[in-house]
Amino acid sequence: MKFHTRKLVKPEDLNSNGTLFGGKVLAWIDEEAALYAIVQLENAKIVTKYISEINFMSAAKQGDVVEIGIEVVKFGKTSLTVNCEVRNKMNHETIVTVDNIIMVNLGIDGKPHPHGKTKIEFVKDRLAAANEA
């Protein structure tokens, strides 16, 4: 799993117990999955269709640095399914896992649209191929 983003847990991210609010970390996960899908599918019109069971495993507190990892599970015709792990950067303790997040590629009409992708692509490879052409 590749960890792409780091977040600092700030006072406004805390719940009444003084730990990272679950809703905040879920918003971070949703945003990270969307950004990953946008880059992979080369389309800014991406929406979240489904988020599977969310497993909260440990807490994070103010001042902790957390990192968000995304890994592709499968490419569908109009979708990309990923899983996610959020962990504490300092001790690598897992905070949250999500097994399946389905992101859907939309066309200009706002409806699901085939993306034509079948494997992970890296931007550096796309740039190299564009320069060769």
Rank of each mutant, 00 (worst) to 15 (best):
I102H: 13
K7V: 02
L106F: 00
E12I: 04
V65W: 14
L20R: 01
V104Y: 13
L35M: 06
V73K: 12
G63T: 05
K77W: 11
V82K: 07
I46A: 09
V25Y: 12
D64T: 03
M90K: 12
D125A: 09
K2W: 04
G23C: 04
F75E: 06
V73F: 11
V98S: 01
N105W: 07
V82R: 07
H113G: 01
Q62T: 11
T78N: 07
A37S: 06
V9N: 00
V73C: 06
I38S: 12
D30V: 01
N83L: 01
T48N: 10
D125M: 08
K2F: 06
L8T: 13
L41R: 08
D64A: 08
N131H: 10
L127W: 14
I51D: 14
L14G: 07
N43R: 01
L8I: 11
H113T: 03
V66Y: 10
V96K: 00
F56C: 02
A133E: 13
R87C: 06
S79G: 05
H4D: 08
V82W: 10
I70A: 02
R126N: 10
K89E: 07
I51C: 12
I68N: 08
H115A: 02
H113F: 13
I54H: 04
E71Y: 10
D99N: 08
G76V: 05
E121C: 07
I102W: 13
L8E: 13
K124I: 07
A44K: 10
F75M: 04
R87P: 08
L8W: 15
A129L: 10
V65L: 12
M57R: 11
G23M: 01
N105P: 07
E132A: 11
P11G: 04
P112A: 08
I95H: 09
K111P: 09
D30T: 02
N83T: 02
L14Q: 04
K117L: 05
H115E: 02
I29Y: 10
K45L: 09
V86P: 15
K77V: 06
K111Y: 05
V9G: 03
F75Y: 15
E12K: 09
I101C: 12
K119V: 01
E31K: 09
V9T: 01
A129Y: 12
A130G: 07
Y36P: 09
S16A: 14
K119I: 02
S16F: 15
N43G: 07
K124M: 08
V25W: 12
N100F: 11
I68S: 09
F122W: 15
G107E: 03
T5Y: 15
V82M: 06
M1Y: 05
E121A: 10
A128V: 11
V98E: 01
K45R: 12
K117I: 06
T5K: 10
A44F: 11
V39I: 07
V82E: 09
N105A: 05
G18Q: 03
Q40K: 03
H4W: 15
W28N: 08
V25S: 14
I108S: 13
L80K: 04
E132F: 06
V104W: 11
V96Y: 00
T97I: 00
N88C: 09
E32S: 11
L106Q: 03
